[in-house]
């Protein structure tokens, strides 16, 4: 399931599971709204969009105008992806396998403004860790939108993996019409603890599987 092909699990058996098409695990409310929206006649839809846009523009103009009389040129089109993309950790998805060398973590990815940003999770700092968004390794978040995605992290080699690093990283390639950037998202707090839990389970004290080999805890090398 971590294949590189464009997997699109329409009506897949685990479609209501915790990890599937990006965005498809959004609250059901939106689904219902979408259905109703689809049921409207095209003209009504168009006028609704136009009215919505007009309203937004008006509100935006009202909010911005007095604050900043000399409005800057429309910067948004030239926004660099790393400056407009935000990751927030939501929590642990289930560990899908046992023995535990793999965990799934859910994030909310927001693109604050500007054009759509396409993201690909390429790693989690360490050589011994693999990270990938599931089910598709690459996903797009439209400008101004937030998507919830699941990142699967698996432990491939325990040697040289610190078990309590304090901060954990996701290396992500970000791409929009303006630029391609390689960027790291740094997490303290909950994600760091959850990932450390996985590393402990996978690498300490008994290494699971044939691949990982046992090492002393990272702190034993701390003499300086």
């Amino acid at each position: 399931m971590t294949g590189t092909g464009p997997v699109e699990p329409v009506n897949a058996p685990d479609a209501d599971g915790s990890f599937e098409v990006i965005g498809a695990d959004a609250p059901r409310l939106t689904d219902r709204v979408a259905q109703r929206w689809g049921a409207l006649p095209p003209r009504a839809r168009k006028s609704a969009v136009a009215a919505g846009l007009a309203l937004l523009t008006a509100v935006g103009a009202l909010l911005l105008a007095p604050d900043d009389p000399e409005t800057r040129e429309p910067l948004d089109l030239s926004a660099w992806p790393a400056d407009v993309t935000r990751w927030d950790y939501l929590g642990l998805a289930e560990h899908p396998n046992s023995p535990t060398t793999r965990g799934s973590y859910r994030f909310a990815v927001s693109v604050l403004r500007g054009p759509d940003v396409t993201l690909r999770v390429t790693g989690a700092a360490f050589d011994g860790l693999r990270a990938q968004s599931t089910p598709r390794p690459e996903f797009t978040v439209p400008g101004g939108a937030t998507r919830r995605i699941t990142v699967e992290i698996s432990v491939s080699d325990c040697s040289e993996l610190p078990l309590d690093a304090g901060f954990h990283y996701l290396d992500v390639t970000l791409r929009n019409t303006h630029a391609i950037q390689r960027h790291s998202f740094i997490f303290g707090g909950a994600f760091s603890r959850d990932l450390s839990d996985l590393l402990h389970e996978a690498c300490d004290p008994i290494p699971p599987g044939p691949g990982p080999r046992p090492i002393g805890s990272a702190s034993s090398q701390n003499a300086d």
Binding site: A82, R86, D88, Q181, S184, I186, G188, G189
Partner: peptide, 9 residues
């Protein structure tokens, strides 16, 4: 050579 954004929550 590398940029990063932190979320320490």
């Amino acid at each position: 050579v590398k940029t990063g954004t932190a979320d320490l929550g």
